[in-house]
C-alpha cells in the first residue's frame, strides 16, 4: 500500500523528468510515461479507489495534488517548447497579411442596428420622396399654412410655396397613412433638409428615424412599451426612459421621450445640461385629424408615431464631434 512519502517521492521524480525534457519528441514520451493510460501517475491515481476508508481523506488529497502538479508542469513545459522551437523559424508576432476589409458608413451602421431591433418587433422599413409638396410635408401632418410650428422648421424651397425638400421623415408617415391599410408597423430612416447655417452641431442635411404603428386598440401604453424595448436594446438594459407631455402638431396626446444621460448615468453633467436626462425622441398618438383625413375613424383605428434625429446618436457612438464630418469627406476609413 501507498504511503505519503512514496507519493512525495513519485512527485519529485516526475517533476525532474519533466524538467529534463528538451524537445517535442521527449515531451510526448515523458507525458505518456507519466499521465498516459499506463503512466506512473495514472497508476497511482487508480489506487485511490482501493484505499481503506480511513486513509482516503488524507492520501486522496495528496494523490490529487500529485496529479495536478504534474499536469501543470507538463503544460508549462509545452508552452515553453512551443516558444523556443517555432520561434527559431518565424516570428509569429509580426502583423499578418490582412485581406482588405470594407466598412459601412457610421450612419448606415446605426440605421441597420435600429432596423434590426424593430424588425424583431414586426416592423417593416419604408422610404419615400425627398422632394415634397407642402401638402405631404405640412398640411397632411396637421400643420396648415401659417401654423406657428412651421417656424421651427425652416424650409428649403424648390418652388415657393409648394415644392420643397422634406423637413422631416414625417412626410413619409403621411404617405403611408394615405396608401396603406392598417394594421401596419413601419420604421423610416432617411435624409431630411432644413435651412441652417451649417456648423459643428447643425447641418443642412441630416438623418431622421421615424416610426409609425397603426391598428385597432393601439395605445400610449404600447408606445411606451415599444420605445422602452428599443431604448434598452440600443443603449443597454440599464438605460432609463422618461415619458413626458410634449406638444407636436401631428400627435395628440404628445410625448417627449428622454433617456438617462449615457455619460453621467443620470448624475448630471455638461452633456445633459445637468438634467440627468437627454431629449431623444418626439412621439405621440397619431392626431385624430390625420386619421379622419384619410377616411378612417379615430374611434376605431388609432396609432402612434415617433421621430428622432440620428446624427447625434451616430456622433456619440463613433466619437465624432462635428456633424459635418459625417458627410463631407472627413471619414476616410484608414
Amino acid at each position: 500500500m501507498l504511503n505519503q512519502s512514496e507519493i512525495e517521492k513519485a512527485l519529485s521524480e516526475a517533476l525532474s523528468k519533466v524538467a529534463k525534457i528538451g524537445d517535442q519528441t521527449s515531451y510526448d514520451s515523458v507525458k505518456s510515461d507519466l499521465i498516459g493510460k499506463n503512466g506512473q501517475v495514472t497508476k497511482i491515481v487508480k489506487t485511490l479507489s482501493q484505499l481503506p476508508p480511513d486513509q482516503k481523506a488524507t492520501l486522496g488529497k495528496k494523490i490529487n495534488e500529485l496529479k495536478k502538479e504534474v499536469e501543470k508542469a507538463l503544460t508549462e513545459k509545452e508552452i515553453s517548447l512551443a516558444h523556443s522551437e517555432k520561434g527559431l523559424e518565424q516570428d509569429l508576432t509580426l502583423p499578418g497579411h490582412k485581406p482588405v476589409v470594407g466598412h459601412l458608413h457610421p450612419t448606415t451602421i446605426v440605421i441597420n442596428e435600429m432596423n434590426e431591433i424593430f424588425l424583431g418587433m414586426g416592423f417593416s422599413v419604408a422610404s419615400g420622396p425627398e422632394l415634397e409638396t407642402d401638402e405631404w410635408n405640412y398640411d397632411r401632418l396637421n400643420l396648415p399654412l401659417d401654423h406657428p410650428a412651421r417656424d421651427l422648421q425652416d424650409t428649403l424651397y424648390i418652388k415657393e410655396p409648394d415644392v420643397l425638400l422634406r423637413t422631416h421623415t414625417s412626410s413619409i408617415e403621411a404617405h403611408i397613412l394615405d396608401e396603406m391599410k392598417p394594421p401596419y408597423r413601419f420604421v423610416i430612416p432617411g435624409k431630411v433638409y432644413r435651412y441652417e447655417n451649417a456648423n459643428a452641431s447643425n447641418n443642412i442635411m441630416f438623418y431622421q428615424y421615424q416610426g409609425l404603428v397603426m391598428g385597432e386598440g393601439i395605445t400610449m401604453a404600447q408606445l411606451k412599451g415599444t420605445l422602452n424595448t428599443f431604448v434598452q436594446k440600443f443603449w443597454g438594459k440599464e438605460t432609463k426612459t422618461r415619458f413626458r407631455c410634449k406638444y407636436y402638431p401631428e400627435v395628440e396626446p404628445g410625448v417627449g421621450v428622454d433617456i438617462s444621460c449615457t455619460f453621467c448615468r443620470g448624475a448630471g453633467c455638461s452633456v445633459c445640461k445637468n438634467r440627468g436626462w437627454i431629449e431623444m425622441l418626439g412621439a405621440g398618438m397619431v392626431h385624430p385629424n390625420m386619421i379622419k383625413r384619410v377616411g378612417l375613424d379615430p374611434e376605431k383605428i388609432s396609432g402612434f408615431a415617433w421621430g428622432m434625429g440620428l446624427d447625434r446618436i451616430v456622433m456619440t457612438r463613433f466619437g465624432i464631434s462635428d456633424v459635418r464630418s459625417l458627410y463631407n469627406g472627413d471619414i476616410i476609413y484608414q
Binding site: M121, G122, R185, V213, G215, A221, Q222, K224, G225
Partner: peptide, 8 residues
C-alpha cells in the same frame, strides 16, 4: 402609463 408590448 404602463408599458405594453404590441399585441395582436
Amino acid at each position: 402609463i404602463p408599458a405594453h408590448s404590441l399585441f395582436g
